[in-house]
Amino acid sequence: MTQTADLLVTGASGHLGKAVLAHLIETLKVPAARIVATSRKPGDLGDWAARGVTVRKADYDHPSELAAAFTGIKRLLLISTDALDEPGKRLRQHKAAIEAADKAGVAHVVYTSLPDAQNSLVSFAPDHAGTEAAIKASGIAGHTLLRNSWYSENVLHALPHALETGKWFTAAGKGGVSYIARDDLGLAAAAALTSNFSGKRTLSLYGEKAWTVDEVAELARNATGKPLAVVQVSVEDLVQGMTGAGTPEPVARVFASFDAATAAGNLAGSPEDFEALTGRVPQPFAEWFANNAVPVLTETA
């Protein structure tokens, strides 16, 4: 029997998109013929096409093309875009995709959002809150909103530089982040996409516990043998420090908002939803750190 391509992954050429595709085929054993992968650059998906996945071009900045890309799809994973260079652009892109999915007759949308999107102090939280609202207001029958906590991989943005200088400047205070590996979030998205659930739900996906900056710094010191002092500063001082080091102010404010959100508890939570969705526990952050961060940190130490 010929398989119908009815599951679609947007942003499939990105890190998360590739993890979703891998879990669909390798973990969940979904026939490749059922899967459609879209990207602005479909040529980047050649390896997946070779495995039998249907590859289509989908550019959110060209909304008229999206409905055709979504034709025949019953369940669609909308991976949030990385368009943070222009205020309003990301939300506009998401709304275009939602409208196209509605027109194409998509029955269920899975969206990768942010914890506590309506209240989070993360600077781009309104993009996620607005997208969630647009999905709920659309004519699409069902949705699963995946409020993804911070990737474990995010610690590698600031930590290498902090180890070089011996000081980790932060405005996170004693707040913690329930880090979760990107691969685990890929599994969760794949599970939601293939689920028989047809209603409307919101799931918050966190790692096993919340880690403070002090606790992560301790992991780094133990792994590298290098001194690392955690220096608590205000959000404004953190912004000034980053801009003084050459970071454009808009970018510095985005990064500083992550610390503000951490201090407010916006990125800490329980793994219960992840476990219920996937049937697994998330990889412990300390284990991920040892297997993935330590090789990077010791190589640059």
Score class of each variant (00 low, 15 high):
Thr170Ile: 07
Glu208Arg: 03
Gly269Pro: 12
Thr278Gln: 00
Lys41Met: 06
Leu146Pro: 04
Gly52Met: 03
Gly173Phe: 11
Gly166Ala: 11
Ala158Gln: 09
Pro31Ala: 05
Leu21Arg: 03
His94Lys: 07
Pro63Thr: 03
Ala261Glu: 13
Asp273Asn: 08
Leu205Trp: 09
Lys200Asp: 08
Val230Glu: 02
Asn148Asp: 09
Asn291Ala: 14
Leu121Met: 05
Ala162Glu: 11
Ser270Ile: 11
Val122Asn: 13
Leu163Tyr: 14
Arg56Leu: 06
Leu185Pro: 04
Val254Glu: 05
Pro160Ser: 07
Trp150Gly: 02
Leu205Lys: 12
Asp47Ala: 14
Gln93Met: 06
His143Glu: 12
Pro250Glu: 00
Asp127Lys: 00
Ser149Asp: 09
Val20Asn: 07
Met242Thr: 03
Val294Ala: 13
Asp59Pro: 03
Pro227Phe: 11
Glu275Asp: 12
Arg40Val: 05
Glu164Cys: 11
Arg51Pro: 10
Leu203Lys: 06
Gly265Met: 12
Gly142Glu: 03
Leu203Phe: 10
Gly186Pro: 05
Ala67Tyr: 13
Val36Lys: 00
Thr298Tyr: 12
Thr212Val: 09
Ala49Cys: 07
His157Ala: 08
Leu219Asp: 13
Asp47Ser: 15
Leu121Gln: 06
Ala141Gln: 14
Thr202Glu: 13
Ala117Ile: 04
Lys200Met: 09
Ile98Tyr: 00
Ala129Thr: 08
Leu238Tyr: 15
His15Val: 15
